[in-house]
Simulated scan of single mutants.
Amino acid sequence: MFDQTIEPIDSCGCGDTGYLTTRTVPIDLAHGVGHIDNVPVYHCRSAACQEFTLPLFVSHRLEDIAEEMENTQATEAVYTWIVSGEQSLDPLQQANNQTHLQAFTLQFSGREYTDALVVLIVPGQAVFFQSTLEETEYYLLRYEEDRGTDGIWFSFLKFYYEEPELTYEDFLTWSEDGRLKEIGCITLEEIEDALIGEFGEWEEVS
């Protein structure tokens, strides 16, 4: 499982509130200018704004990808969370499962349902929701990699967490004691309807 997390909201490069999204980012290489697709960034959603900011560890990951691009003389790459040496630099690989899962989880950035809001995203792996009815009540949508069945599956879990701030690192340690209650397992195609059934309709926080 990936151990990197991204908050759904931070700051845009222009100074306004930035919402997590993805975009193609240019990058200077020894053999010219290259481009990396599907890079997580914070942007204010203004069509006139060309600024954005990168999460810190995304910046570090871009350095690794740039080094790989220079080693292979590539000018196009796709951002993934896979460690150096395992990533395909072929842009046609964007449809692979890992990239698809990353894009799927990132689309929840900024969502607020009637009874819950998105508070934490682990790209390609998990989305955390906090109840708007009970502040210590949380839900976790987590990718299940080794189910041994066809399709892409997620587990849907519920837990109560009383600390004032939920971080992924603390959650991993805390959850080792079996404090998660599994509500069920659902396929990727069923998730949208299941979340609306559980939390009500959603809108993007502006």
Rank of each mutant, 00 (worst) to 15 (best):
V127I: 13
E135N: 14
G85R: 13
Y42S: 02
V39D: 00
Q102M: 15
F57P: 00
G34W: 09
N38R: 01
G110H: 00
L120S: 12
S46G: 09
L117M: 10
L56P: 00
L54T: 02
P40M: 10
T136D: 15
E135I: 14
V118S: 10
S59T: 09
Q73G: 00
A126L: 00
V58C: 03
L54K: 03
P40T: 10
S109Q: 02
G85K: 14
N96V: 04
S46M: 08
Q50F: 09
V83I: 12
Y139I: 07
G124I: 06
Q107Y: 04
N38W: 02
Q87K: 12
E135P: 13
Y113D: 05
M69F: 06
E63S: 11
E51K: 15
T80M: 09
S131A: 04
G85F: 15
F129W: 02
V33A: 07
N71S: 03
T53C: 03
Q125P: 00
Q102R: 11
A116M: 05
V127P: 01
I121R: 09
E67A: 15
I36N: 04
V119M: 05
Q50H: 12
S46Y: 08
Q98L: 14
L54A: 01
A47T: 15
A103Q: 14
Q125Y: 04
C44H: 05
Q93V: 04
L62M: 12
V122A: 05
T132N: 06
M69I: 08
E67R: 14
S131L: 03
E70D: 11
S109Y: 00
P40K: 01
I65N: 04
G124F: 04
H43P: 07
T53Q: 04
L89F: 12
R45E: 11
E86P: 01
A66R: 13
A30S: 13
T136A: 15
I36L: 07
I65Q: 05
F104R: 09
G34E: 08
F129I: 06
V83W: 12
V58M: 07
Y79Q: 09
Y42G: 04
T132C: 03
A30F: 03
P91G: 03
M69R: 02
F108W: 02
T80K: 11
E112S: 02
Q98G: 06
A48L: 13
Y139F: 15
V39W: 01
E86A: 14
A74K: 08
E70S: 01
L120C: 09
Q107I: 00
T132G: 03
L92H: 09
C44R: 01
D64F: 13
H60Q: 11
S88A: 13
S109I: 00
C44Q: 11
G124C: 01
I36Y: 09
D90T: 07
C44V: 11
R61F: 05
P55A: 02
L133E: 09
T105R: 02
C49P: 07
P123M: 02
E68F: 04
T132Q: 06
S46Q: 15
